[in-house]
């Protein structure tokens, strides 16, 4: 666990980057620091591995004041992933990943075999190891950055806008991968971003910062979205914060009925009973099916609301893990449920 106690950081030029910050980052969880630029979130992150030292206050890592440790030793025990990966252009991917093990004196052979293992963990092909960073795509470089941070199996991972420079599709993939890894690894992760959607997606807790280094609110995503502490937080969460909240609940538990028969809209299925599309009974027999996006129980309520609007029949097709139709849920049912989810999130907070 990382604990900030009345931490203040003023730079020599007089600007206050972090103002009296008291904050806990729980063990094994992802704490996201979010805010617009100049709000002190990156400075806060960099104080944890002593890239920046606080002007006053204490930061404890597993109960120990970090100022008492040697900075280099401390850093070797903390994984660090930065924007645009920060990989060493002159080292192969494998040697990049092996950096910290080599610093820890593991020996080249052991460090490299550990690095090769990690490339696999983050979903890279083994032959990527022999390449140089510029030979990889932006998304692959970020994966290498994550592998490098994990190399010595540190309990704490600091991530400074690690997925900021990749396109949205790749970013979503990387976010999914991080969540998948975190399920197995349970690291204490501090993640900086200015993207509130990313914060909601990844964070177990979200700390919202305001310009001048003030922490405005730190809460679980549902609580933050349902009950923003003030107008600043509400504005930052954006006009769609109600919809964002729906991204946190799933379809599981929502009742479903049989697929419609005999009406204008019928759900076309293949031989394995997987939905193919909506058939319009009023249209010519050979007209194409309208697209259907069938949802599983684990999909979010937000995607269900979206599909309920997109579906011509006003029905959401539900499938099991294999993609086989289990039933349909009506638009009204989904919207009622979404409203209740919103109210209960607010009440729980």
């Amino acid at each position: 666990m990382i604990k900030f106690d009345e931490v203040h950081k003023r730079f020599p030029n007089g600007t206050t980057a972090v103002h009296d910050l008291s904050l806990e980052m729980p063990e094994g969880q992802i704490t996201v620091l979010v805010g617009s630029s100049g709000c002190g979130k990156t400075t806060t992150l960099r104080m944890i591995n002593r890239m920046v030292d606080p002007t006053s206050g204490t930061i404890r890592l597993a109960g120990k004041d970090i100022l008492e440790s040697d900075a280099a030793d401390l850093r070797r025990g903390i994984g660090y992933v930065i924007q645009q990966s920060g990989l060493f252009p002159h080292r192969t991917v494998l040697d990049n990943v092996a950096t910290v093990p080599l610093l820890l004196g593991w020996g080249r052979k052991k460090a490299r075999s550990r690095a090769a293992e990690l490339l696999e963990t983050v979903g890279l092909a083994a032959d990527a190891g022999k390449r140089y960073p510029h030979q990889l795509s932006g998304g692959q470089q970020q994966r290498v950055g994550v592998a490098r941070a994990l190399a010595a199996d540190p309990p704490v991972l600091l991530m400074d806008e690690p997925f900021g420079a990749v396109d949205p599709v790749v970013r979503t993939q990387l976010q999914d991968e991080l969540l998948r890894l975190q399920k197995d690894l349970a690291k204490t992760i501090v993640f900086v971003t200015h993207d509130i959607d990313e914060a909601v997606r990844l964070g177990d807790r979200i700390a919202v910062f305001r310009t001048g280094g003030h922490l405005v609110q730190c809460a679980e995503p549902a609580e933050l979205l349902a009950r923003p502490a003030d107008d600043f937080v509400a504005d930052f969460l954006g006009a769609e914060r109600g919809l964002k909240l729906l991204s946190l609940s799933t379809l599981a538990g929502l009742p479903q009925g049989p697929a419609p028969e005999g009406g204008r809209w019928e759900l076309a299925l293949d031989s394995a009973r997987k939905p193919l599309g909506w058939r319009d009974g009023d249209a010519a027999a050979d007209s194409p099916l309208l697209p259907v996006r069938a949802l599983r129980d684990g999909d979010s309520l937000l995607s269900a609301v979206n599909e309920s609007i997109a579906s011509p029949a006003g029905l959401v097709a539900r499938v099991d893990a294999d993609g086989v139709l289990t039933g349909v849920t009506a638009r009204a049912e989904i919207h009622d449920h979404a409203g209740e989810a919103h109210i209960s999130a607010g009440a729980a907070a």
Binding site: R75, R76, I82, S85, V100, L103
Partner: peptide, 15 residues
């Protein structure tokens, strides 16, 4: 030398 490379080295605990 890219600032990010220098920063990464320091942040990983190189003196």
């Amino acid at each position: 030398v890219p600032a990010k490379a220098r920063e990464a080295s320091t942040a990983m605990g190189a003196k």
